[in-house]
Amino acid sequence: MVYQNILSEVKERILYITINREHKLNALNKATLVELADAIAFAGNSEEVSGVLLTGAGEKAFVAGADISEFSDYTIEQGMVLAREGQTNVFDAIESCPKPVVAAVNGFALGGGLELAMACHMRIVSENAKLGLPEVTLGLIPGYGGTQRLTQLVGKGKAIEMIVTADMISAEQAEKIGLVNYVVSQPELIRKAEELLNKIKLRAPLAVASALKAVNASLKDGLNGFDVEIEEFGKCFGTIDFKEGTSAFLEKRKADFTGK
């Protein structure tokens, strides 16, 4: 696929995805969501990718929201399809990606933008970041998993407050309530995300994927997270990386993992 709305580049086993609609504050339109879905699918299936760094172009916004002009006249049925397809193809796909996905958030992350960041496994934000879910000001609620993931990350009371007041919060507030992992200066944003991903690159790739799957299972209805953990733990014993990791530990040397 030739991308028109995002930039995608693999460097040193990190897939850099940049939402490239700076003139629209990187708002999510249908075409951008299709391209994101394609890029995330590539990341999950490619042996050359060990992690994903997702960010937005420019200094003003990560993603300032969804492109409202595309759905302002939708019916009930069309609205449900919009949410279901977006959640399945993009937001849930990011959360379920077997490679760690880190959001590097600069400036505004509002509505669908915050939902996109919350679908990622970790969030690094710049000091100037503003985060919020303003959908109720449009007569809507978050439709890309925002009500669920925000509650999981910050708890029911704070999630309800943010959603029904539509208030934006600062980077400092976001870190305080556990919504983001780190707050850094603007020039340090990408470097901090790279630091995390480069550290993860040194770990056993199949074990990382199993860990992500087990953690996600703790939040899925109908799944027993403990059972998933036991199953994934057992699978690790059948990998070459397990043999390498334990041998390296016993031989007091650095492990050389191959993802097999």
Rank of each mutant, 00 (worst) to 15 (best):
F42T: 06
F42A: 03
A43M: 06
G44D: 12
S46T: 05
E48L: 08
S50F: 11
S50H: 12
L53C: 10
G56S: 03
E59G: 10
E70R: 04
D73G: 11
I76V: 13
I76F: 14
L82C: 01
V90T: 06
F91V: 03
D92A: 05
V101P: 00
V101C: 12
V101Q: 07
V105G: 07
N106V: 06
N106T: 11
L110A: 05
L110P: 02
G111K: 00
G111D: 13
E115Y: 04
M118F: 04
M118S: 06
C120G: 11
C120S: 15
H121D: 15
E127N: 09
N128E: 14
N128D: 13
N128L: 05
A129L: 03
L131C: 01
E135W: 01
E135V: 00
L138H: 13
L138R: 09
L140F: 12
L140M: 13
P142Y: 01
P142G: 05
G143S: 03
T147A: 09
T147C: 10
Q148V: 15
R149G: 00
L150V: 00
T151L: 11
T151Q: 12
T151W: 00
T151P: 00
Q152G: 08
L153T: 04
V154E: 01
K156T: 15
G157R: 14
G157W: 03
I169S: 04
A171H: 05
E172S: 14
A174D: 07
G178K: 06
V180W: 01
N181L: 13
N181Y: 09
N181K: 12
S185M: 12
